[in-house]
């Protein structure tokens, strides 16, 4: 009799610990804020001397040598002409006489509204997508999402929005929003491509270490500075162009820019940067 009671007790304990394990394994118990805090804590342990606000400067928060070059580049910002071109785009009316101003009455400093969960369309809305929806509603052709003129208007909006703070919200009472966030998080931690890396392999597990001469950047701060003038590109490009490039580097086929997967990844990544200042357009190697 005693044995069966003990057996039952052990059984119960095993079941409870299994349930706890299952919960931790799937990350169900961790909401967006717990995730963000865990990332912040992780980077803080790795880079104790880096102040919280510095993460908006990306890799230059943790790379003193690269930072010197970057600061020199920022003295004559290579993205400036794109801001000017974007200002023209913003002010020029569409063929129907309306313009971006009509779609975004509080513009052009609207960076801090994005990305957001669009309750009506039941999807993550990003700034490039919103700009194209505005164009299409007014009979204009949508812009391409990786290269070209979309970067001009994004540069102008980013510049006008400098100093705003990332403030992404995941409405926990909306299962669609929670699912989108969770999908973005899963994407971040999933290994892909022939080289078998996840975003986390490089930008969490090995942040601060070097691939050849390149220091791997932390994910807090990944989204604050777009669009970015990359010396490698010789021009300004979008965040989703960078996602594609990253996927290509690990020998995975890039997914569609502004497709569901990348938008959800942007949702998750942006949440991680909550509290950081927007400082786009940026300049990077």
């Amino acid at each position: 009799m005693r044995l069966t009671v003990m057996g039952r007790e052990i059984m119960k304990k095993i079941l409870i610990s299994l349930a706890v394990l299952a919960l931790t394994a799937t990350g169900v118990q961790a909401g967006p804020e717990e995730d963000r805090m865990a990332f912040v804590k992780y980077y803080k342990a790795k880079f104790p001397s880096v102040p919280d606000k510095e993460y908006a400067n990306g890799v230059y928060a943790i790379d003193p040598v690269g930072r010197e070059n970057w600061e020199a580049i920022e003295e004559f910002p290579p993205y400036e002409p794109f801001i000017d071109a974007g200002k023209e785009m913003w002010e020029k009316p569409f063929a129907n006489g309306k313009g971006y101003k009509d779609c975004f009455p509080d513009g052009p400093a609207i960076q801090h509204h994005y990305p957001n969960w669009d309750k009506k369309q039941k999807m993550v809305m990003t700034l490039p997508l919103a700009l194209n929806q505005c164009r299409e509603a007014n009979g204009e052709k949508p812009l391409k999402y990786k290269k070209g003129p979309i970067n001009n208007i994004l540069s102008y909006i980013a510049f006008q929005s400098r100093g705003q703070v990332v403030n992404v919200k995941v409405p926990m009472d909306d299962p669609g929003a929670v699912a989108a966030y969770e999908e973005g998080k899963k994407f971040y931690f999933t290994r892909r491509g022939q080289l078998n890396f996840s975003c986390a392999s490089c930008h969490l597990q090995n942040t601060g270490l070097k691939v050849r001469t390149e220091i791997l950047s932390p994910s807090v701060g990944h989204v604050t500075n777009w669009p970015v003038y990359r010396s490698k590109w010789g021009t300004v490009g979008t965040l989703h162009r960078r996602f594609s490039g990253c996927n290509n580097n690990i020998r995975a086929k890039a997914l569609k820019a502004q497709g569901r997967q990348y938008r959800n990844l942007e949702y998750f990544l942006s949440y991680l940067s909550n509290g950081q200042e927007f400082n786009g357009p940026g300049a990077r190697k």
Binding site: N206, L209, K210, V211, R212, T213, L216
Partner: peptide, 13 residues
Amino acid sequence: CHMIEDGASPGNI
């Protein structure tokens, strides 16, 4: 990712 002998610009992962 690895330093090897005198190999140029090695990573340190």
